[in-house]
Design a protein around this nucleic acid. Structure first.
Lengths: 191, 191, 191, 191
DNA sequence: TATGAATGAGGCTTCATTCAT
DNA sequence: GATGAATGAAGCCTCATTCAT
């Protein structure tokens, strides 16, 4: 009883996982503890509260997003189009792989009113996401329109992720990915 | 104490309202009772359980949707375009007026795993919605493509509604409405 | 299930009893429930919190004090001396009968820092007590000195009650009662 | 983390300090550890339990009392009166300086039932205190009356210390000190 | 129909304590 | 000696639900 069973990072990602799949309220500290092979009390060795766990999970995911998904966007040696493709693919893969939708989107709906501190974090995440896309669209569409298109792209992914959860079908996600890429594609028919 | 006469319908819509604004888990029978001017125990004269209340709220909203929003779609004496405009406007108004997002979308995320009976109901709702839109797009786009476009439209509204909740800005909703209409619009440029 | 097992007043006095005997922290809601023949959850049918129970117990005791102990003090048709005797006897009887000391004195030490709302209530109680005694001493000693003597009398009772708890001997209480009466007695030797 | 070397004595006096200010139940081992710059686990290198800490704190204070406060009482080369003045002054200073009342008095109320071993220790402390005072009063008042007066003096200090805690005013303490001295004062009038 | 009373189950959190390093 | 990790037990409180009136 002194050998680490898990790291704080693992606790947070496990919590995030459960929150995403089952929802915040529907995930008890007991569930988290069980999933981690810890006792309930031990969870509190790593975190002061369930709220804090949600907060940490959001931050962790945001960090992951920055490092593994949106980073390409700022690799200025690549063409905007290439960057958009890479970004979009990464996003698609990300949401295609994990069931249960988008942790942050889900938490946005479920706990924003209950844990006001999270609102800012959640907005930060989406704002970053929108900015990343807008950054690539700016040259072609101008600042304002790029912003709008980016916002729409994000909201489409969120909607797609919800549909995927409901219908167990990843097609909508793939489709939004293609629509995003098409924004910088030659021309033609995609809407 | 209250002696307020309320109808079952009012109870259900009040429940739906609270579920939408505060979430399912974050709305207690007590909250519902208080909002209706009833005692907690009295709520159980109208419904056998909280689950049932969620179920009823979904059905009620679905019904409302059919009667007040999607009905136009099948008024075959109007042009597809006119019907789409009316439908889209109704939808926009619907989501623009009520804060807290989409009851059914929210419930989809929060209670689908916990009350399996609801999954079918929720799917029915979205399927109806998709069908309604697809019905209008069929002639122009063909069955399959219409279905896809309709699904995308729905998912865009859902995403927009989430954004609106987060950023307190209805613009995204309005935008999705216009995009939907543009699908049958004369020419080009909207994506 | 539906027949009253206890009244709110009984719950409060039972709580007060246990707080006085065992202390606030050392009395659990479980203990209170058991003593009342209720389940833990049922306690919350009558009170919103343990804090509130302490608050209510203080108020209840204060009320009892006003109605049954300090009331005599203001029966202006009696001589000051007679009133002091009656008051002092009542006080002696009160503290002699119940083990565990003074609820309010105990709570003053244990929860004042933890439930700041209680501080005012506790002060109110002691201030009333002091005022009652001072009211009787005023004529003989003048306002300021009467106040001091009254404060000392109160503090002596509190100290006596603590000693009684420790040594299981009521003599100190009886002694303080006599000393208080002697303040308006003929003259002589009591200090 | 802290690596602060502290002695067992410091741990005990810090514990006593916290117990006095915040109460026994309201002071956690964590609090004590933090105040000492130790980790929670390290506290257990100095003491086997929280109970033992309370016990040690009482003994430590008792020892302090004997060495620094009551010692004068037995310096038979001084007059009783002079010794009483010195004793009383020391006591007044002692209780005036430290907020939170009397550790031992507080513990008497809060943990006597929960840690029966402490009862004897607490009685010992007060018995020593009473004996010290009685020792000085014996000649003038006779053994029995001296004992009573001493007990009353102690109980008055305890009451005063409680009042001081509640009203943040040291006057009552000072007053009891003067009353004690007056017992051997030349003449009359103090009660 | 309406509701006050009651409750089992469960949720979050704290805490004293142990133990391997 | 010092401490991070872990935990059983317990505490406060909420909640959906039942039932007698």
């Amino acid at each position: 009883m002194g050998m680490k069973k898990i790291s704080k990072d693992e606790l947070i990602s496990t919590s995030g996982h459960l929150f995403r799949i089952n929802g915040y309220h529907n995930t008890s500290i007991s569930d988290i503890a069980a999933e981690c092979g810890l006792s309930k009390a031990s969870v509190y060795h790593y975190t002061p509260s369930k709220h804090a766990l949600a907060e940490a999970a959001i931050k962790q995911l945001h960090q992951y997003f920055k490092e593994n998904i949106s980073a390409v966007v700022y690799q200025e040696h690549l063409s905007e189009y290439d960057r958009l493709v890479k970004f979009s693919d990464a996003l698609e893969k990300f949401y295609t792989q994990r069931e249960g939708g988008c942790l942050i989107g889900n938490l946005a709906l479920e706990v924003t009113d209950i844990i006001p501190e999270l609102e800012k974090l959640i907005k930060n995440y989406f704002t970053d996401w929108i900015s990343a896309i807008a950054h690539l669209l700016k040259k072609k569409f101008g600042h304002d329109r790029a912003k709008q298109l980016a916002e729409d792209a994000v909201l489409q992914f969120q909607g797609a992720v919800m549909m995927r959860r409901l219908y167990k079908d990843v097609a909508p996600i793939t489709r939004q990915s293609r629509k995003l890429i098409a924004l910088l594609g030659d021309d033609s028919s995609v809407n």
